[in-house]
């Protein structure tokens, strides 16, 4: 077991969690697409008992009769999916401090997946530091590109 940390974009909601492995998955259902404004959500499934909320519990929204979604109301970061009555929950992969440790092992909710978005490796690419406008804004306000 490894203890890792994560939290929302603004740092208001921080957590630590005991991980048994680095397996994660994607959900492509319409509710998860709307919850993130994206084409899918990346989740890590863990026992509720493995999670410690270090600063405060996330804010919660009863997104459906079967589940509640945790997030930070200040910065909007989606943090959890908590099935009603379940002793497990999902943490969003992007909220971990070390997102790169995880690897996807499954796709769920595939009835609504957007097939054209699943393999984007062939598209043209651009690094943030190659975007002149965005880089100029960061340099003017932060003095550097974001971490």
């Amino acid at each position: 077991m490894t203890v890792v940390t994560g939290g929302c974009q603004c740092g208001r909601v921080r957590y630590s969690v005991e991980l048994a492995d680095d397996d994660a998955y994607l959900c492509h259902c319409r509710m998860c697409q709307r919850a993130t404004g994206g084409v899918s959500i990346a989740f890590k499934f863990v026992p509720r008992a493995a999670v410690t909320w270090l600063t405060r519990e996330p804010d919660r929204y009863a997104s459906s009769p079967i589940a509640t979604r945790g997030f930070c109301r200040e910065c909007g970061t989606p943090l959890t999916y908590e099935g009603e009555g379940s002793d497990h929950l999902d943490l969003t992969v992007g909220s971990f401090d070390d997102t790169a440790r995880f690897r996807p092992v499954e796709n769920v909710g595939v009835e609504s997946w957007h097939a054209g978005w699943l393999d984007v490796t062939g598209l043209p690419t651009q690094r943030t530091d190659q975007n002149v406008t965005i880089t100029a804004r960061w340099m003017a306000t932060l003095g550097k590109l974001p971490d």
């Binding site: 940390t5 603004c10 208001r12 600063t55 306000t141 932060l142 974001p146």
Partner: peptide, 21 residues
Amino acid sequence: ALPEGVPQWPQAPPAEALAAL
């Protein structure tokens, strides 16, 4: 004991997150 709900990071924060706050 830090006040509940105030942003905190164990080490350096992402620079843009602190700047936003």
